[in-house]
Write a protein that binds this DNA or RNA. Structure first.
Lengths: 344, 344
DNA sequence: AGCAGGCGGGAAACCGCTTGCCAATCTACC
DNA sequence: GGTAGATTGGCAAGCGGTTTCCCGCCTGCT
């Protein structure tokens, strides 16, 4: 089908196109890749025809080498199978598509060491920007992420972190603390008085902020956080922690706040598997509002985070030269569903 | 922190490293990037020290330009927020990481036009391989995907498609038909006699195969597929279709087979929202065994597809020079959960 | 001691594309 | 009709690496 005058071997190069069109390399380049210089209509047509005929596609690597920067944005997530990151990635991908950028993705598996290695590797691509969406741990970061990021910034790349940022990097803020406080307040209003929080380990900002916010809001409403259990960000961590909690004996009417929806859903499953009832018996709340929260029964009470939009914004933070740092944080919204019925 | 003898501007280049180490460009290249040629230990050390000191990272674009091929594998999915693709992508990412490849991802949004455009764009990266995971539509493909893929293969790239493949491309097979048949048979055995299938539009191979297989297996067991409703592959499509189905009147004991878990979960939600019971009242089954299927109640009966492994295999199909096309397809397994209780 | 052969460093060509600069052609105005 | 100025091709020098040769030097064998 497409064997017209097949280039000897491999892809057609700009050279081939130029020759085919009978113009110089420079002219062909100017026609095919955005250049400010004008090219006469007749030439332009010839070049375009030749390119079409040869099925020419610019070699992005060569282009990047010549231009010194690649039309790439790198995305670092903890786990792409996690719906939280999936939705976020969708937003990033949409923005990238609009901006004509390619997105490369890397998985940290929540391992800080790995994260540093990956940033270093991605740096090699000379991407326009780098989006860090893996939950970052606080301060010290003994392993040198900061250095690596600095190096990246030093070569002209922009770094955007979603979630608790800080420092010089651009941050797409998420008011974890405020959202959790609102959730806590609402739950206190619904009549809950005792809560257990299933969080990630201390030092993970996202987790810490949510715990702090929740404690604050719930406390202000007259509730007490009886205990903070440390788990992880996964469904299974939630499941297992809840199992232990249940084994220890969980009075009716207790509320469990899972640090994220994924965790909360694991908790719900454990409760049901133990023969208890989610809702009136043991209430559960989460955070993020991932799609699944609508489909479990009872529905999961949570704080809505516009994940897709978050990713979209992160993309822009990581690529727009003039990014408005003052843009207001995305609004979070408490969503009450059946997993936390009002207490009598 | 890292200001030793900061390169004038931008990243350190191999040039910088060579100069710093007092060796030639060639030697530095040989030390830092896999070369078969040996370099004396003393030189090697000097170069490595220099690289370390300067925080050198090879410019992948330049490397790709010089080598003619990039250490990249491109992944095309319909929707990265969909857990099916998320898990698949996780497998791809794992394999890529092991192989030292970077993965770039693109979203087709299930639009064939877009898909062609994306393949063309990705081609520009000269990736080692391309993984097509977006459900492909049958035959004709008026828009020229085949040509585009051929062009890609022509320049030395490998194409792997997961799911119903065919033609010259490498295929990571999934026995949709057999799996669905097994599911149908099992459900018939459980006592179901009437089923409604909620599928995607005709022409989508994955959907067609599952419908055919299910009809076959269910029929062989004595059941009848009363109707095939056309929807899409999304949760909402399932939800809405089920709503209509319910409005039309759904006799107790009916079984609804959703073409994928995502669809089936939408169906379950619609049933419950309509005040009916999932299970004894209206039974539901899906296909894929996404993680969420465990957490809804009742649990979703489905066919287990090792998605992560599927992605992992796809990665290899798309990159290994000698890929064993005869490798047996991944085993599928029917998983019966509460959404399809045995009928009296 | 003499010579072949292997080892390994370095110069330079090249990968595909961009872009600064030069020069040729064209337009316009006096 | 001549000349200044504006257009717009094309040449060639990069961009940061890789890799082919070439060649000097060290071994080892006779």
């Amino acid at each position: 089908m497409s064997d017209t005058s097949a280039p000897a071997r491999g892809a057609a190069t700009l050279h081939d196109v130029a020759r085919e069109a009978g113009v110089s390399l420079a002219t062909a380049s100017r026609v095919l890749n955005g250049s400010t210089r004008k090219v006469a209509e007749s030439y332009r047509e010839r070049v375009e025809a030749a390119a079409e005929k040869l099925g020419y596609t610019a070699n992005l690597s060569a282009q990047a080498t010549a231009r010194g920067t690649a039309a790439i944005v790198a995305l670092l997530v903890a786990d792409i199978a996690d719906p939280y990151f999936g939705q976020l990635a969708a937003g990033v991908a949409r923005g990238a598509d609009e901006a004509g950028l390619v997105v490369t993705i890397a998985i940290t598996e929540r391992d800080p060491q790995r994260e540093v290695r990956l940033v270093r590797a991605l740096r090699g691509q000379r991407p326009r920007g780098l989006i860090l969406a893996a939950s970052r741990t606080e301060g010290t970061d003994a392993v040198g992420l900061a250095d690596e990021l600095e190096a990246f910034a030093g070569m002209g790349g922009r770094v955007a972190v979603v979630g608790p940022g800080g420092g010089s990097v651009r941050t797409v803020a998420l008011d974890n603390r405020g959202g959790a406080a609102a959730l806590g307040a609402e739950l206190a209003r619904l009549g809950y008085r005792e809560a257990i929080v299933v969080a990630a380990s201390e030092g993970i900002r996202t987790s810490d902020d949510r715990v702090a916010g929740f404690t604050e809001g719930f406390g202000a409403g007259g509730g007490t956080v009886r205990e903070v259990r440390r788990a992880g960000f996964t469904r299974d961590a939630g499941y297992e922690t809840a199992q232990r909690l249940l084994a220890d004996g969980l009075p009716e009417g207790t509320l469990i706040f899972g640090i994220s929806d994924v965790v909360a859903i694991g908790i719900m499953s454990a409760i049901r598997d133990a023969g208890r009832q989610v809702g009136a018996d043991v209430a559960v709340a989460g955070f993020d509002d991932i799609a699944t929260g609508r489909d479990v029964r009872p529905g999961l009470t949570t704080v809505h985070v516009p994940l897709e939009e978050l990713g979209y914004r992160a993309l822009h933070a990581a690529t727009d030269p003039e990014w408005d740092a003052t843009e207001p944080p995305l609004p979070l919204e408490v969503i009450v569903r059946g997993s936390t019925p009002a207490r009598a």
